[in-house]
Structures are given as C-alpha cells and as structure tokens.
Design a protein around this nucleic acid. Sequence first.
DNA 1: ACCGTACTTTACCTCAACGTCAATGTTAAT
DNA 2: ATTAACATTGACGTTGAGGTAAAGTACGGT
Lengths: 132, 132
Amino acid sequence: MKLKTSEDHQQIGELSRSLGVTTRTLRLYEQMGLIDPPQRTEGGIRYYTKDDIRRIKFVLKLKELGLSLRQMQELAEIYGETKMPDKIMPRLIELLDSHTDAIHRRIGKLSSLARDISEYRKRIVDFYGIPR
Amino acid sequence: MKLKTSEDHQQIGELSRSLGVTTRTLRLYEQMGLIDPPQRTEGGIRYYTKDDIRRIKFVLKLKELGLSLRQMQELAEIYGETKMPDKIMPRLIELLDSHTDAIHRRIGKLSSLARDISEYRKRIVDFYGIPR
DNA sequence: ACCGTACTTTACCTCAACGTCAATGTTAAT
DNA sequence: ATTAACATTGACGTTGAGGTAAAGTACGGT
C-alpha cells in the first residue's frame, strides 16, 4: 500500500499551509468526525486526496460562515448516516437561517449597546467636562 | 467592632440578590480589585455600605456597557493610585470610545457575514432546490 | 446550648477552538 | 546509514467570567 509522494496526494503540513490553518486544526476536525480520516502510509502518515481536500474546504467554508464545530458535527452525523448530500442540505439551510437570525439579533443588541455607550459617555462628559 | 445588622449595611447574599448577580461575582470582583474590600465583622463577614454599593453598581454598569473585567481593573488601578474620579474619567472615555469602534467593526463584520450566508444559501437552494 | 441559615475560603469545573509542548516515529535525500 | 524535516499521539494550557462543591465558621433567635 505504498503511496507515491505528492502526486495528487498531500500530507498534512503542506495542506495546512495551503489552507491557512494549522495541522492541529485538521487533526482535530478529523477526530471530531467533521472530515473523513484520510488514507495513511504504512508508517501512519496521513495523505489527503483531492476529495478529502474538497470536504475540508467545505467545512472551512461553513466555519467561515460562523457555524460551530458542534453544528458541523451534527451535519457530519447526518451525512455519515445517509451518505446523501441532499439529505443534509435542508438541515444546513435551517442552520444557516437560524444563524442569520442570531446574527441579526446580535446586531440589534450591539446597536443598542452603542447607543447606551454614547449616552453614558455624554453624561460623563457633561458632568466632568472632558471634551477630548 | 461589632456591626449592627442590616441597618444601612448589607451582607453579601442580600446584596447580590438585589443586584441580580451571585455572591461569587461580588467576591470575584473584590478579589480582582474592581471594588474595595468592604468592612467585615469580627467573624469575617462582609458588610457593604451604601458607598460600597454605589461603587459596585458603577462596575456593573460598565460591565453592561461591555467593558471587560481586565479593562475595569485598569481603571481601578488608576483610581487606586490617585483616588480622584476625574483622573479615571478620561481613560474611561477612551475605553468607551474604542469599545464603540470595536462594536461598529463587529457590526460591519456581522452584516457582511449575513450577506455571505444568504448568498451561499441561495446557491444551495438553487442547486438542490429546497425552497421551504 | 443549639439550630438553621448564611457566610467563609479553597479549589476544581465549564465552554470553544484550538495552541503548545514532549517524546517518539517516518520519510526523503544525501 | 545518517540526518533533517516532517509526522504521530497524548496531554496539558489558554481565554473570560464566573459555576459549583466541599468543608468549615458565624450569627440570630429560641
């Protein structure tokens, strides 16, 4: 089961560099079941195929969109059971939607927080008179 | 040095309830130097005066405005050195301002995140066709 | 004197998403 | 065969703001 070096397989260091994450992250994701364990050499070294990499990029994309690892674990479980991407998509849509809601609530809170601060700031400045 | 019970002194449990925080929080703030250690009975029980309580409310207000305990520690240090409230106010204003900036940056990021998500969502829906 | 409640300190636990060793193993190239 | 560079697993550390539990005082009322 020998694998030839970096033909269309990549090992973890190079891959992590090209993805802009650390090896720790890739191993963690694997351990959490977010990505499939890649093939190994006899010595135990991970070699990632193009498919593996596509999957990882998908996960990173979702992370970028703010999904938590916990949520992605859930998706991965669904995927693991059915192996059908169109099974997980409705759930992904749900997650994205509720995430969008959360973001809008968060924005609302932050906005009102900013208003509170500026109000409070005004009170301080009026009272202590430190314009700048 | 006996103290009479709850005349205008309050002990920690009652105070925490009236402030809507736990005793843990009050002790932590004291330990971190955010508030002055209150008087104690001979037995070691904390009794808070009105002034103590004002100070605590101030801290809680700042927390509500999103200052971190670390930042409040800094203010407390300045206050501890000078004992002059008008010394800390300029710094507080600074902190509030930079905090406001951070909030607006955060809001900006969240907004663009929301846009990304809806875009991504659209791509999924278009491709997999799950309107719902 | 005793009870029950509130208080005290100390110390470890929580969550998320990794970072950072340490000790050891594998591989490619010389 | 050796070495340099990379890989492996495992375990502990980090950040923030407390939560929670344990074991032991203190206090007020009877």
